[in-house]
Design a protein around this nucleic acid. Sequence first.
RNA 1: GGAGAGGUGGCUGAGUGGCUGAAAGCGCGGGAUUGCUAAUCCUGUGUAGUCUAAUUACGGGCUACCGGGGGUUCGAAUCCCCCCCUCUCCGCCA
Length: 422
Amino acid sequence: MLDIKRIRDNEAEVREGLINRNADTKVLDDFIEADKKRRVLLTEVEQLKSQRNTVSKQIGLKKRNGEDTTEIQNQMKDLGVEIAKLDQDAKEIEESFQNLLLKIPNVPCKTIPVGKDESANRVAKTVGEAETFDFEPKDHVTLGENLGMFDFERGTKITGSGFPLLLGMGSRLQRALIQFMLDMHVDKHGYTEMLPPFVCNAASMTGTGQLPKMEDDMYKTTEDGLYLIPTAEVPVTNFYRQDIIDKELPVCLTAYTPCFRREAGAAGKVNRGLIRVHQFDKVEMVKFVKPETSYDELESLLDNAEDVLKALGLHYRILELCTGDISFAAAKCYDIELWAPGQDAWLEVSSCSNFEDFQARRASIKYKDEAGKNQFVHTLNGSGVALPRLMVAIIENGQQEDGSIVLPDAIVPYMGGIKTIK
RNA sequence: GGAGAGGUGGCUGAGUGGCUGAAAGCGCGGGAUUGCUAAUCCUGUGUAGUCUAAUUACGGGCUACCGGGGGUUCGAAUCCCCCCCUCUCCGCCA
């Protein structure tokens, strides 16, 4: 959430941010109104409480002196009724105030492109070149099913559409990739590995910004009110919820988790196979940093994600997302897209975002600055990277005319020396 | 899942209705003293909201917070109810 003072003092700046996001500014208007009401009410009720506290203390003193206090007690009783009534009003306005605050998105960073939707995203760079084929390249579904790497029909039978089932070398390749990426982030990039819960409570979901807005996009357990995580960002960031980090910043964590997302993709060719699914695996990187370093840290986070793709020799590009395309909690975001020749399309495999103090305020994550004062950290996260589309790119780029898949050299040691899936 | 014990400030730990936002100790900050290392003494040391102030800053007032929520009372860390968590024992279990 945003700093209340920032909204009060720089309303125009916040409003502009929302407009640039293509977001409704009504929530801001409502918030400002609620804020005014709340402050008036708080002042009033707190004055009455102060009065009550003072008199109550006097009652205590008088009683000890044996004086009769019946009359002032009755007066205080009446005051108590009034306070209770105002308190109720204050509670209601406080609730709506908080709810509105939680619904205001982050203000986009000043430097990012302004635009309504993805058409305004800027291609920051393109790395490598598209694989060329002297035959018609097939898509990953055809290739993988022929090789027994996955069985989508049975996944659908067991659970429903969008729940992919990997098999044999498909399963093995994905496991190898997870291991490969975690090793890289831990050994080369200095992250600490974490294996968190895959289910989180509402407080955690609110902390990172999934709730209240994305409630319908998540799987929820009926008995316990817990949510299946849509990304490792949730448990990993909430590691420090309600905490003051006592470690030297930055703190860098990485985690493999499955991710569960309800949002239904349109069925059909563009979302065929592994492209858009309800359950997928991902290796995530999360950073807790000092505010003044967060934009440098974003660049290094992006580097860390790119390293994976470079090591695998894949053709990719970096998009700098525009104001209308960044997520609710982000101030700035880079997407990484892989080239998939079988799709003849770019596939998003990573989003690297700086949330500034937006999540830290929601989740109350602080550190002690040089002066010993508690300050909110900045949080960042990025996929490093998501598995299904990485699989798609490896399969479609490595395909041979005979339908076999030549694997990137870097992954071979993780495959027990297997160089080709056939 | 059942039974018992317990959850107080950075930590240890006192506190069963008012003089307790909270003793004491430890830790930490500032100062003094001692010719080394060390020790001693003094002093300060929670968070959030809100009002006030105003160029910021510093400050001051008030309210709330002793696991969370509700209740009783003029007044609650303290009494009552519900929930959560931790520990011990039992049950079940990969």
